[in-house]
Design a protein around this nucleic acid. Sequence first.
DNA 1: GTTCTCGGTTACCGAAGGGTACCGAGGCAC
DNA 2: GTGCCTCGGTACCCTTCGGTAACCGAGAAC
Lengths: 112, 112
Amino acid sequence: MQDPCQAREVLGIVGDKWALLIVRTLKDGPRRFTELKRAIDGISQRMLTVTLRDLERDGILTRTVRNVMPPHVSYELTTMGRTLREATAPLLEWSITHLPHIDAARAAYDNR
Amino acid sequence: MQDPCQAREVLGIVGDKWALLIVRTLKDGPRRFTELKRAIDGISQRMLTVTLRDLERDGILTRTVRNVMPPHVSYELTTMGRTLREATAPLLEWSITHLPHIDAARAAYDNR
DNA sequence: GTTCTCGGTTACCGAAGGGTACCGAGGCAC
DNA sequence: GTGCCTCGGTACCCTTCGGTAACCGAGAAC
């Protein structure tokens, strides 16, 4: 790993809370906008729109519009997106397994 | 992975650009404040202070002060911090190797 | 005595994050 | 007709994030 400082700007994108969760949710295939909104608890409509747009711009996922009414827009990981998914999986797993430890550490810190 | 939504708040911490870079920089042992500042190109003094404090609070690293003058403060990963380091390594590596692809995708998107 | 160092803290302020209300067009019930 | 629903997205607005710059205190170097 020769230049971690150049990675800074990339981390600004993929090291985003919502981006990580979106990529994770798309791991099993394409999803529609509203499906993502329902699957990712707590994300607002605006943040979903904005983050999807950013990820599309960066080539992580594709956006496919079918011109029907009501609108049908589906999002799917690109090849690069799938490699990103693999790279982020350990971090997501870590977050879930260590959530209680972090809560405990934080409580201990705040009681000092 | 049963509850990705609870992971959201954890990701708010560890999925932070600066936190990822700090954890990475500490992988080879303790570092002093100014060493970190020099190693992590582009971080401001304020963000280094704030992020270190958050990571200490969450039990990712320890802060050791030696009461000498000039001050000597060193930061070191905890056991949990080292497991986090392992979980984030793939993402950092991915960021560095895919930086050019992302730049290209973004340029293509913006030219549309 | 002036200036440098380390490891911060604080005030200021612009930029970015993020929630809510609203939109448009078709379908359906009545 | 008239309501009201859905889907995907935007406009508005407030709040937090985060960079810059100034300051600190005590020793040490010049």
